[in-house]
Design a protein around this nucleic acid. Structure first.
Length: 456
RNA sequence: GUGGUUGUAGCUCAGCUGGUUAGAGCGCUAGAUUGUGGUUCUAGAGGUCGCCGGUUCGAAACCGGUCUUCCACCCCA
């Protein structure tokens, strides 16, 4: 019985046009990754569950797609466990594999497994889909691409400086103006928590602080109180709510706020180093902004935190993010390997470029020359010229059927093909072709050599 | 995972407090036009009203469930 086809929630088909546009973004990003010295790797789309589980917090575990074991997997489950109907307890018994949730944890696994063949510092990039069992919204899918560049094995802050430049270079190439690279440092957040006497509530504190632009000062304070942060602490943290001025001003304010915290001061100095370097080097189109409320990101960030926000006129969450994690490979048994990296959210960048109409017209050009088909002998005559055009890399094709001219012309129009070649008995006799420019309507009689010259 | 929202032709949407054969624009197909597309004119095709069930003499419309879309949380690219 025929069934109405559908695709899973949060997934999409891509049309030829969409694929072309996506490839444009991907190739731009990859090009810059390579000019910055990153090398490509790929990892499997699914991993052993224990590689992924527990690496993203409880929330993350919930969002990981689990893959059912093969075979008669329920027969191995003991009855008592089955009767309890506890999904969490059952999951580990019936599922041993899970879909990749991000590219960073698989990369950490990769580094540990390949440690003997890797020369540190190792700079890798990776462009692959990831999956999350999330509830979809605009710009939020259950299958989407991440484009990551990370460095492991170097604690140098020059890496952070380079990542800021990398973000700037990519978005400049994409002609996306007005983006903001927001930076913060985990040590600063930790220092603030320490200074206000809420060190044990660091996560609650930062999660609440992160919502400042969304729920406002009162909202943040309310949430902090609910999480058990004292009134006294809130008073100390007050300067953060009116944190304005240049990056230098902000750094100075932080210095006085964090005087008593060794860790906090270290964070300030790190950020200060990066900010100064960038101020000297300059950025093409991006703005670098110190944002103390930036806490987004996974629990394992230990130093720099990056987030890129789209131009303010576009309503879109972050289009990129990243940070430094001093000991990510530690969970897989390799200690003291520092990593820092950034990610580009392909699907969201696509939506932003689409909304701002920033895709270049050339992206949509596919076939450049279409030979019209007037019958068997004419077609064979065209195929000879077609062969030569293809030898010089001109994207060209012949209409396969001897259809009405209007239909063939219409086809060229709809496919956005700029040149059409007509060759009937008259042209064949003169050993020529009629070349028509579909934009201007002009047409010329040309030889094969002239044809190649005009369209290539 | 919680609360809400959306679904009618390929696309964008009308369709009144339930009432005959569910409409428009664009697109599509054919013709006007036998070697010239975009403009114009004419005609035509195309719909299980997301799906399942219920209420009713009668449901695209009301109710329940489900799927999907988008939104707010949560979290995040």
């Amino acid at each position: 019985m025929a069934q109405k086809p559908s695709i899973a929630k949060g997934t999409r088909d891509f049309t030829p046009e969409e694929v072309s546009k996506r490839n444009y973004i991907i190739s731009t990003i990859k090009r810059h990754f390579e000019t910055f010295g990153f090398l490509p790797i790929e990892t499997p789309s699914f991993e052993n569950s224990d590689t992924l589980m527990g690496k993203y917090g409880d929330e993350g575990d919930r969002l990981i797609f689990k893959i059912l074991n093969s075979g008669d997997f329920l027969s191995k489950v003991d009855n008592a466990l089955y009767e309890k109907k506890d999904a969490n307890a059952l999951t580990s018994k019936i599922s041993e594999k899970a879909l990749r949730y991000d590219l960073t944890v698989p990369f950490a696994r990769y580094v540990v497994m390949h440690q003997n063949e890797i020369d540190l510092p190792f700079k890798r990039y990776q462009v692959q889909p990831v999956w999350r069992a999330d509830r979809p919204q605009k710009g939020r899918f259950r299958e989407f691409y991440q484009c990551d560049a990370d460095v492991v094995g170097s604690k140098s802050l020059w890496q952070e400086v380079e990542f800021v430049q990398l973000y700037d270079a990519v978005f400049n190439s994409l002609k996306l103006e007005g983006i903001t690279i927001k930076m913060n440092n985990r040590k600063i957040l930790s220092g603030i928590a320490e200074v206000i006497g809420a060190k044990d509530k660091l996560i609650d504190f930062t999660v609440a602080l992160d919502k400042l632009d969304k729920i406002g000062e009162d909202g943040v304070k309310r949430e902090m109180l609910e999480k058990g942060i004292s009134e006294e602490a809130l008073t100390k943290v007050q300067p953060l709510f009116s944190f304005t001025g240049s990056n230098t001003d902000k750094l100075n304010s932080l210095r006085s706020l964090l005087e008593t915290s060794e860790e906090g001061m270290k964070g300030v100095e790190e950020l200060s180093f990066i900010m100064e370097a960038i101020a000297t080097l300059g950025l093409k189109t991006a703005t670098l902004d110190l944002d103390v409320t930036l806490a987004r990101g996974l629990n394992y960030y230990t130093g720099a935190i990056f987030e890129v926000s789209a131009p303010s006129e576009v309503k879109m969450g972050s289009i990129g993010g990243g940070g430094r994690y001093d000991d990510l490979t530690g969970i897989f048994g390799l200690k003291d390997v520092s990593g820092v990296g950034i990610s580009f959210g392909l699907d969201r960048i696509y939506l932003v470029l689409e909304e701002l109409n920033l895709f270049p017209e050339e992206v949509l050009e596919s076939t450049k020359v279409l030979f019209l088909n007037f019958g068997e002998t004419e077609a064979l005559y065209c195929l000879k010229a077609l062969k030569k055009l293809r030898e010089v890399d001109v994207k060209s094709e012949m209409y396969p059927d001897d259809a009405k001219m209007k239909k063939q012309m219409n086809f060229a129009n709809k496919r956005n093909i700029p040149f059409v070649v007509l060759a009937g008995s008259k042209e064949i006799q003169e050993e020529k072709f009629t070349l028509k420019n579909m934009k201007t309507g002009e047409q010329f009689e040309v030889t094969t050599e002239e044809l190649i010259e005009k369209v290539s």
